[in-house]
Design a protein around this nucleic acid. Sequence first.
DNA 1: ATGAAAGCGCTAACAC
DNA 2: GTGTTAGCGCTTTCAT
Lengths: 366, 366
Amino acid sequence: MAAPRKSSSNRRATVSIRDVARRARVSIATVSRAVNRVPTVDPDLAKRVWKAVAEVGYVPNTQARALVSGRSHILGLIVSEITNPFFPELVQEFENLAVAQGYEVMIGSTNYDAERTEQLIRRMLQRSVDGVAVMTFGIEEDIIKRLVEPDFPLVFVDAGPDLPNIRLLKVNYDEGIREAVQHLAALGHREIAFISGPLRLRSAAARRDAFRKSMADLGLAVPARHLVEGDHTLEGGMAAIEKLAALPELPTAVVCSNDMTAIGVLHGLFRTTYKVPEDISVVGFDDIHLAQFVLPPLTTVQMSCNSLAAAAVQALRAGIEPENARAPQSEWPIATHLVVRRSTTFPRGTLPALKRKAASAKAGKK
Amino acid sequence: MAAPRKSSSNRRATVSIRDVARRARVSIATVSRAVNRVPTVDPDLAKRVWKAVAEVGYVPNTQARALVSGRSHILGLIVSEITNPFFPELVQEFENLAVAQGYEVMIGSTNYDAERTEQLIRRMLQRSVDGVAVMTFGIEEDIIKRLVEPDFPLVFVDAGPDLPNIRLLKVNYDEGIREAVQHLAALGHREIAFISGPLRLRSAAARRDAFRKSMADLGLAVPARHLVEGDHTLEGGMAAIEKLAALPELPTAVVCSNDMTAIGVLHGLFRTTYKVPEDISVVGFDDIHLAQFVLPPLTTVQMSCNSLAAAAVQALRAGIEPENARAPQSEWPIATHLVVRRSTTFPRGTLPALKRKAASAKAGKK
DNA sequence: ATGAAAGCGCTAACAC
DNA sequence: GTGTTAGCGCTTTCAT
């Protein structure tokens, strides 16, 4: 309750470590130790210090701390586009976790622009972030390698530059995408198309490869015309489904490299006579919040933001505070799983037959 | 191109002002002045300094600068929810502008939680941000007033605590909402409902008031049953339209306090037999990116993120650097305007008659 | 276990 | 106009 005093006519309330020391009748070194919970401090003295801290309303000056210790307790978080709905969810969770663990976070988006990316990294370095999580699912790795000290703590998704203090979040695309393809195949689909992300991104390529592999494992062919490159945006999804719709025969199902693409597909199809899922089943990837609310609710492969964020923060800390790291793991697995909603059903033309069966079964019951 | 040297075995490349001074054969004070573009430095010396800066790869240490100058060059930006699509667009623009003007930005979301808000402000203060823009459209003003020095630079939207160094972004709700109501009335609507935001937020109340005023000015009644309180979320919009749909007679148009609510309305109606806009016209507010891509594309009142962000950054700087402020304005107007898309049309039942007229007019022309 | 003192890298008086 | 110097608030040796 004690109001902080002002040291001068300045705008900041400056209660320094000295004020605490004076009040607790100890040296500033002891205050520093007590506040930083150094275990060798006498418990009684520590208590006195904490009392004084409360009385004068002392808050350690982060800048000074950072200056002398060389550590800012700021984590850098780089995303592609903050306006892509996937990322705010990630940012939110990352921030919650970081703050809970005593870190602040500095966010930036690359907007897929190399120059902007470079500026961003420079800015982060200049603010001496303790480490950076690069969650762009693909980035010019050279930029990082050029700007950053070799042993700077770094986290990448899927793949990153070859650096000693880097940790990789290994998303298990195969798992979820296999589930999606099997779900579709089980419904009877054979003609399944895939709308990829920009293939220069390794993560986009990985998703497409997972799709091809899953299809091949089921003995299903994927003709080139069923592999369309999108750009992970709603607009891209609309453009991609238009291409697919222009084919002599529309595939009966399409899986998309992310949810925004799938939502674009939904929108693109809305303008045609095709209905989802009756005429074509649509599967997304990511499971963003919005996926539950589009029409129909989107069947999608969930890649948990929460686990991604948690792994990122943990992995960064492991790089920053090696002393606290449990295991020296350099790869952190991230699971993916299919979430079935309403955008997938039997291939068109097959449903009536099934319905008839079901009806007769029901009739038999009664 | 010169590689930065390491001072010790540390991870940071430490090129200090001293290295530059040595290299340029001047004092560190001169380096400081040159780098900070103090005009009294001899041009030749300045040139030598800059040359040395480039040669040794000097980057000023932000922490030290902040420590001694008391200014961090960080702008705080508080939003309600980063996952609400309106905000990422704002954040993006705010960040672009701030960075372009030499500031970094520290973002945080309140999630409408008072305790979280308080922690957030404490964190920002502890990182000694130079000012804070509170873009939540309503917040516990007491928290701010309690935590912050009286003359701390602050920006609020619509209304804020009574503090000397505060600037208000005054959104002209009347303007855009009047346009929306007039647009609807011109189409022939009389039964126009309004789904508000949470009314404890001043800005939500302001939008509702603007609606009532516009209606009254046109001599249109707004029965209580046509005023539903939402919560500015998609889910809230769905719930609200359900209430409206349960009425003996569905209004012919509904205007919503924000776009997410309107999108919720669209989704809620999709599950009924009512069609938008044939059976009911829907108007949003904000004009988020998504508004163009829902089905049908949303007629909405645009409140430009860009102008909001630009005004916020400018207003903050005016508070932080009074010496650079052009005018000592304390209120910054933000315009709003109707953007007509496809979610509004004539009231149900009237279109056929009009169509017939149009057809005969056309026939007459030919 | 505690204190004195040396800086971290920089800016801003203050002298010249 | 330039240099010298005193800190900003803190952590961390190094003595004790």
